[in-house]
Design a protein around this nucleic acid. Sequence first.
DNA 1: CAAACATATAAACATTTACTTATTCGATAT
DNA 2: ATATCGAATAAGTAAATGTTTATATGTTTG
Lengths: 114, 114
Amino acid sequence: METPLENTLTTKAATPAGLQAAAFVAKALADENRLRIILSLTQGKKSVSRIVEELGISQPLVSHHLKELKRALLVNVERSGPFIYYELADQRIMTILMDLTGLATDLLTNRTAF
Amino acid sequence: METPLENTLTTKAATPAGLQAAAFVAKALADENRLRIILSLTQGKKSVSRIVEELGISQPLVSHHLKELKRALLVNVERSGPFIYYELADQRIMTILMDLTGLATDLLTNRTAF
DNA sequence: CAAACATATAAACATTTACTTATTCGATAT
DNA sequence: ATATCGAATAAGTAAATGTTTATATGTTTG
């Protein structure tokens, strides 16, 4: 079945509920530390302490941001002994992060070319 | 040239500047009213008053959000007589909005399927 | 049980942000 | 010039958010 962009937008995004959901997820992506966490989780399931080590930000702050990501349903949580592992809830999160970064860098680099 | 997802992430997103830029753009997308404006501009260049009519939100609020979108380089502005027209600065914004909405609705609908 | 470790939560604070109401600026037309 | 229309800005406020420091919860091990 053919689904041109224009069509997909009017059928999936145009609904208030769709936009509200999108804004909710976008809020979760609207912080550099959370994007760094997401990028880190791109490599697979990781414990909180592992993320803390890799990113060099405080443990309570990492916990807080993980809570936000969980609230936005972007990560799944799993306990194993004293460790708690977080993983990305959906592969598309990586794609969106990639697209977002590509667009953002292009916009900043090439200010008038579009 | 082949660019698998994993590769693209590590070359385009992994840089602090890339993530910072992505977070900046994500902030601009993290509001339902701004997403409604973007969706509206999907149909093409529009004046402020036109957006106000279509979305039913106050003129100062629309102006404020347009200012934010412009700050994030997501829209271009053009004056024509007494009217000021805004248009999307890049076509990829539509794609990202679509992907974001698709992901968000799936996450909210299907809470455990992934 | 106590000590040690992993993680979450609480409290407090500063900053940002969305929104409203009121006013100003800019352009056009009479 | 002045009135009118489109759009931006100012001022003010309430709410949300990111961060730090301190404390609590939960799990394992001696």
